[in-house]
Computed example of a mutant assay.
Amino acid sequence: MNEISRDRLESQREEREQAETEKEQVYSEFDDEMKTLQEQIDSLTQENEALRAENAGLHSKFGEMDKRPVLVMGDEEDLYPGEIKELVLSVLADKLERRVAKRSRRSEVFSNLIKKNDYQGVYRKKKAEIQRILKNYTIMDAKTRKALQDFGFRIEEDGKHYRLTYFGDDRYKTTVAKTPSDARAGKNIAHYIEQTMM
């Protein structure tokens, strides 16, 4: 009987030790999982606080603004960075120079908008550049091809012509003869590009 009791006690002791080991293992895994979750909570809390601060800053900024923007962006996208803004400002600058009376309300408003929007005169530079590239055009040599590509044109052969597509947008394309017979061909193409693509 003593032997049987000892065996039972030994068996129960082993079962208790095994249960204890399993319990510690579960606690350890649970503890690791809790630490990971706590780290995630801390990280998300910090991110939430940063977003809350940013949101508050934006709200205060908009609260200070009692004016709406002069223009709302349409559906057209820039063909290159800043293109639409420069285009609008160039139209205002041209209008201001040619058709607006000095010391008029229009003159004051247009001048102020041009100044406040950091107008760079990109289109004037682009017009001068396309005129320079095509001024004496007689053949599509490597120098002319590179200059046109740098300007934003995709160039493809099309029979006796080259097809030029502005920034890959098929709405804005033209052709140039491979060997033009008209001495003014380059100037005419440059003028067409200025009128339709810039």
Rank of each mutant, 00 (worst) to 15 (best):
M1L: 08
M1N: 08
N2D: 11
E3Y: 13
E3D: 14
S5N: 06
L9E: 13
R13T: 00
E15F: 03
E15L: 04
E17K: 08
Q18S: 07
E20L: 07
T21V: 07
E22F: 02
Q25I: 05
Q25S: 08
Q25T: 03
Q25M: 09
V26D: 13
Y27S: 10
Y27Q: 14
S28K: 04
S28G: 09
E29P: 01
F30C: 05
D31M: 05
D31E: 08
D32I: 06
D32C: 04
D32R: 07
D32Y: 02
K35P: 03
K35I: 00
T36C: 11
E39W: 00
D42G: 06
S43E: 11
L44I: 00
T45E: 09
T45M: 10
Q46I: 02
N48R: 13
L51R: 08
A53P: 04
G57S: 10
S60E: 11
E64C: 01
D66E: 09
P69M: 11
L71S: 14
V72R: 13
V72A: 13
V72S: 15
M73T: 09
M73R: 11
M73I: 00
E76M: 05
L79Y: 04
Y80I: 03
P81V: 04
P81Y: 11
E83D: 12
E83R: 02
K85V: 03
L87F: 08
V88N: 13
V88P: 04
S90P: 06
V91E: 14
V91A: 12
K95W: 06
L96K: 09
E97G: 05
R98T: 03
R99W: 05
A101W: 05
S104K: 11
R106F: 13
S107L: 02
S107A: 15
E108H: 02
V109H: 15
F110M: 13
I114F: 15
D118P: 00
Q120W: 05
G121Q: 14
R124I: 00
K127P: 02
I130L: 10
Q131D: 10
Y137P: 03
T138V: 12
M140S: 07
D141H: 09
D141N: 15
A142G: 10
K143W: 04
K146S: 14
A147P: 01
Q149R: 08
D150A: 11
D150N: 13
F151R: 06
F151C: 02
F151W: 08
G152T: 00
I155N: 10
I155E: 13
I155L: 11
I155K: 13
E156V: 03
D158E: 12
K160A: 13
Y162M: 08
Y162I: 01
R163T: 04
L164Q: 00
T165A: 15
T165H: 14
T165V: 13
F167T: 05
F167Y: 15
K178S: 04
T179W: 08
T179L: 14
P180W: 03
P180C: 08
K187G: 04
K187S: 00
K187P: 04
I189S: 09
I189T: 12
A190K: 00
A190N: 01
H191D: 07
E194K: 12
Q195S: 07
M197L: 08
M198R: 03
